[in-house]
Amino acid sequence: MKFDIGRVAAAEQYLDIKLGDLIKEAQSDTGLSLRAVRALVAIGTARPLLPELVGFTIGTDDLQRADAAIREHGIDAAAAAVGNALGRFLRDVSVGEAA
């Protein structure tokens, strides 16, 4: 799973939430909602179709792939993978390395 600026922007748009609010939700006592985990797994594993032209979007196929991954690995493992990938993205962005 990987996040970059385009993927995170697509997740923000899909979830109608800002990155800062998403991080606050992740750090809350209850953690990310299933809706957020599903969307982030979908976009974090999406294969880009000409991202330089159309960017990333979350489609039905992406959500179905995310659903299958969550069922296979469990919600806790999926949420942990999302958290780890978001953490890497935030570290990269803070030092100017994210694409």
Rank of each mutant, 00 (worst) to 15 (best):
T60R: 14
F89G: 00
G55I: 03
R65H: 10
E25T: 05
R35M: 11
A46F: 03
A78C: 08
Q64K: 06
V95L: 07
A77C: 05
R65L: 11
R65M: 13
Q13R: 11
L63E: 13
L19C: 06
A80P: 04
K18H: 09
L86Q: 09
A69E: 13
L90G: 02
T60E: 15
A10P: 02
F89M: 00
V93M: 08
R7H: 06
D21G: 12
A77P: 05
A42C: 09
A79I: 01
V82R: 07
I58M: 04
G74K: 13
L90K: 02
A79H: 08
E52K: 09
P51R: 00
D16Q: 12
A9R: 04
A69T: 07
L40H: 07
A99C: 01
L22M: 14
P51W: 04
A26T: 00
K18N: 07
D4R: 02
P51S: 05
A42V: 04
T60D: 14
K2P: 08
D29P: 12
K18E: 15
R88C: 07
A77K: 12
E12A: 00
A77E: 14
E25D: 11
D29E: 15
L22H: 03
E52N: 12
G87Q: 13
L15I: 08
D16G: 05
M1C: 02
L90D: 03
K24V: 08
E12P: 00
G20M: 07
L32K: 01
P48C: 04
A11I: 05
E72V: 00
I5C: 03
D61R: 13
A46R: 11
L63Q: 10
V41P: 09
V54G: 04
G83E: 13
G6D: 00
T45V: 03
F56L: 02
V54D: 02
L86P: 11
V41R: 07
D67Y: 04
I75P: 14
I17Q: 11
R35F: 15
D16M: 14
L86D: 08
